Amino acid sequence: MRRYLFSTGLLSAVVGGITLLRALRSDESFTWRTALAWLSWGISISLAIGAVVDTRRARRGRLIDSDSPVAPKAKKLYKSRLDRSLR
């Protein structure tokens, strides 16, 4: 589980969210730039969680979409899983 929780994409998205929360504490008004920053953060966290889910699925030998960033490694992961199960 640590492998998934401490992935670099997920950690950077969480740190970005903390930075945005700190910006909300200031007395500045909410502008369109702030809204875009929150939208960007939401997309980043979604992509990071999706990569973690795809990695977990690939390690368990399940199929993943070909547009996933894990797809090139999925064949290696699937092969190693198959080799372990045959032992």
Rank of each mutant, 00 (worst) to 15 (best):
P69A: 08
D83L: 14
I49R: 02
R62M: 11
V70E: 01
V53M: 08
G17Q: 02
E28V: 10
T34W: 05
A51R: 04
R81W: 10
D67A: 12
S12N: 14
L63K: 15
T31S: 06
T19D: 07
D83V: 12
D54W: 02
S7N: 06
S85G: 08
W38C: 05
W41E: 01
I43L: 14
V14N: 00
T31V: 00
D27W: 04
G61Y: 00
R59I: 10
S46H: 03
A13K: 04
R25N: 12
S12L: 11
L86D: 06
I45Y: 09
L39G: 12
K75F: 11
R2E: 15
V14M: 03
G9A: 10
V53I: 13
W41M: 06
L5H: 14
S29R: 10
Y4M: 01
A35W: 12
A23P: 03
L36G: 01
A58F: 01
S80Q: 14
R2H: 15
R22F: 10
L77I: 06
T31R: 04
I49M: 07
R84P: 09
A48H: 03
I43M: 09
S44D: 04
R60K: 13
A48Y: 05
L63D: 15
I49K: 02
A51P: 00
Y78L: 13
R33H: 11
S7C: 00
L77V: 06
V14K: 02
D27H: 08
Y78G: 10
T19W: 09
F6P: 05
S40H: 03
P69D: 02
S85C: 05
Y4T: 04
M1C: 13
R22N: 06
I43H: 10
D83G: 07
D27R: 07
R87F: 11
L10Q: 03
G50E: 07
V15D: 08
V14T: 03
L47C: 08
A58C: 06
K79Q: 15
